[in-house]
Write a protein that binds this DNA or RNA. Structure first.
Lengths: 115, 115
DNA sequence: CTGTATCCTTCAAGATACTG
DNA sequence: CAGTATCTTGAAGGATACAG
């Protein structure tokens, strides 16, 4: 049994799922693996996700210590998001998901070279 | 670019996320890693998920070739669900999620021995 | 640029009852 | 036992406008 902020988890997998419980969060982690990004960059990386949702997911990820938010006192304002040390460990998870996706595609999909 | 059933994915991670896009599916895979299970067993393993949802998720997982459904011509009827070969490969993904959860709990949670 | 605030739609999932 | 059939609701997320 694991307890975090009053929430209880029966196993570490359940905990992990609670942190990255949707696609948008995983995608955000995914692009942050490429280095820190500005709010604008993240929004543009997901045309299919609204700015509001991006804001919300970034907040949740920050609250869960997965990403770190840095505000630069400039005009115009600049805010950068980067993975925290623990956030970077999600790379392993993403990596296995990548491998699985490749195996799956090899078996059931039509993979094409990047066009 | 990967194409499966008219759907297009930009990377294998996106494909994987499309297959296991919610907690309930991952949990189903999780308990099936312990061997084949009957419909009833799966339902009872998730008191918080309704039978209807379990049915739906099982169908989706079967359509995606992750699990295999076997019907025994008996009275009363018996149906068993088991992971397919590709489904078993999800164990690696679950495994890294487990590791991440442990690291995370060690840093931010209060872990207690099973009571 | 980096957000907030509001309204609104839609869709997943719960409750419940019924069937082969 | 292993589902299917309705009905309903709640919350997530889109569109849009506005603020610091």
């Amino acid at each position: 049994m694991i307890t975090i902020d009053e929430k209880e988890f029966h196993c570490p997998v359940e905990l992990t799922l609670d942190i990255i419980n949707d696609k948008s969060k995983i995608f955000i982690v995914y692009i942050l693996l490429g280095g820190q990004k500005r709010f604008k960059d993240i929004c543009e990386a997901f045309p299919q996700i609204t700015q509001k949702t991006v804001t919300q997911k970034l907040k949740e990820l920050e609250a869960d210590h997965i990403i770190e938010r840095t505000v630069f006192a400039e005009v115009p304002p600049r805010v950068e998001y980067a993975l925290s040390p623990i956030g970077k460990e999600l790379e392993k998870v993403l990596s296995t998901m990548h491998s699985f996706g490749e195996s799956y595609a090899a078996k059931y999909g039509c993979k094409r070279d990047a066009k």
